[in-house]
Amino acid sequence: MEQKEGQLLDVGLELLAAGQDLARKLEVDVCGVLLGDGVERLTSQVFEAGADKVYLIDDPVLKNYRTETYMKAVGDLVRKYKPEIFLYGATSNGKDLASAVATDVLCGLTADTTLMDVDIDKRLFEASRPAFGGNIMATILCKKHRPQMATVRPKVIRRLLAEPGRTGEVIEEKVSMREEDLKTKVIEIVKNTKKAVNLEEAEIIVAAGKGIKDAKGFAMAAELAEAMNATLGASRDVVEAGLCGHERQVGQTGATVTPKVYVAIGISGAIQHLVGMQNAELIVAINSDKDAPIFQAAHYGICADAFTVVPMLTKAFREA
């Protein structure tokens, strides 16, 4: 359960959802592993998100992530409690930690898993992942070694709805590391100064393409974004036409976004645009050309004149 500054990351909650599915098939418990300084209060949230047990190590030496300390703490847990399957979020720190722990306990590790299943009879974890730059999917198996470990990409699993009041057993462990014996020090954490537009974190995006033509059309898209409580994005051609700043550009040379909802208005769907948004959960495209490539990437398509349907949608959302 990766946390930063006492806040659980979403990916841990997603892992619990995946873990519940696997654990139900194998008839075992799902356990959360929570490390940090002053993180005990997060246990209730871990239970509510689906854990049956929580392994907790609360120690000042674990305040910020360091491979050195976290590897030791997690490696010791693995040796002591011998889980069958161990999942980590495929974040910068999660991948770093998992690689170090797998080498420490000498077991296999599947990277960047996006699909998971289990062979119940053999109790074999089947973790599938993209490789070769996304050209192929491969199922990785680990027949002899335990635990079977994997890092799992954020945002590929939908987390469970929190069950308020759900609780379980907390198993507390200690570490015996002293700051002065450690080789690595975190000197400072520098956060990106909040950008005026944060497309990467937006959960709903309405994006305007060249099909909106001019400033008036752009304003029309902006109104829909406002009505939907969405962040406004754009294709490169719209940025180049001077209708908005580059900070709104989605695509290869702009932002890579993974919102829950992406509404593309008058965007043709060039590959350089698609690579920036194709992982959105729900893509709706509005385009007057029924053969526009954006319809290949979208889940739902509306072949229509944007200038007719967009104002109608805006009105409907305002009234909703």
């Binding site: 910020n64 360091r66 690595t184 020090k185 000197i187 400072e188 954490i189 520098v190 956060k191």
Partner: peptide, 8 residues
């Protein structure tokens, strides 16, 4: 969220 300055 940004970058860390780490010494080792």
């Amino acid at each position: 969220e940004g970058y860390e300055v780490i010494s080792s």
